[in-house]
């Protein structure tokens, strides 16, 4: 654990009396892509929401770059270098593509640097540039996913949390989204990826954790999990 970017220590999260997460612990090393896989309802989204402060754990703690962020309100997390691409994209459908991207840079001050980041996003996602003055609600699902990713990148995060980026997309778009995630990794950004498409996720990840009914059931190198009998049976359909 030389260079830990994000560390989750024994978090427990409740929805009323139901315990959604049980003593979940894992860590993400700097520069890696870590995948969190599991079935529907295993607690993947809950885990991400707890990390970015949209939910508060009943116990346990979360460290970002060694700093305890367990009690930090959600709106202060992004300026600490962590961005979150939420499940279902959640772009602001009534605002234009450009305004969505600008909101991604809400906590940044330097106008010139923001303009540079905008150009970088447009280089990675040329389609967004074409549609910059359209309202986000008029984009296709794949384009909205690109916008949600671009919007998160506008905060210049050192770690990016992505929740089901391939959900509901055509196979062509899925491939494109995953090649962009690899590009993001190459640029030095750490990625925590939640995916139901375990095959795809494990093939680009360095490490992976398997979440089952609210607790970590397995962990290891992504390449090893990809060949693990249990994982193959339960999540890869082979």
């Amino acid at each position: 654990m030389a260079d830990v970017m994000l560390e989750i220590k024994k978090i427990n999260v409740y929805f009323g009396v139901i315990r959604a997460l049980r003593d979940v612990s894992f860590y993400v090393e700097k520069g890696e892509v870590v995948a969190l896989i599991g079935a529907n309802g295993a607690g993947k989204t809950t885990t991400l929401h707890t990390i970015t402060g949209l939910l508060k754990p009943a116990s346990g703690s979360i460290f970002l770059g060694g700093v305890d962020i367990t009690k930090t309100p959600a709106h202060k997390i992004v300026s600490m270098g962590m961005a979150h691409v939420p499940e279902g994209r959640r772009v602001f459908s009534l605002l234009t593509v450009e305004d969505n991207l600008r909101l991604g840079a809400y906590t940044r001050k330097d106008k010139k640097e923001i303009a540079e980041s905008m150009e970088e996003v447009f280089t990675s996602f040329p389609r967004l540039k074409e549609r910059r003055s359209q309202t986000a609600g008029t984009l296709s699902g794949g384009e909205q996913q690109m916008l949600a990713m671009g919007r998160a990148l506008m905060s210049k995060p050192s770690i990016l949390l992505m929740d089901e980026p391939s959900m509901g997309l055509s196979p062509l778009f899925v491939d494109e989204i995953f090649s962009i995630i690899e590009k993001i990794k190459k640029q030095g950004t750490t990625v925590l990826l939640v995916e139901q498409n375990a095959n795809k996720a494990l093939s680009i990840a360095d490490h992976a954790y398997v979440l089952e009914t609210g607790s970590i059931a397995m962990e290891g190198k992504a390449s090893e999990l990809l060949n693990d009998e249990r994982v193959r049976k339960a999540y890869l359909g082979a």
């Binding site: 979150h84 959640r90 602001f92 909101l103 809400y106």
Partner: peptide, 15 residues
């Protein structure tokens, strides 16, 4: 306008 549409996503922007 962002808060009016989606409070959670707005918080993720740092609002």
């Amino acid at each position: 306008r962002a808060v009016s549409e989606d409070k959670g996503a707005a918080q993720l922007m740092g609002i």
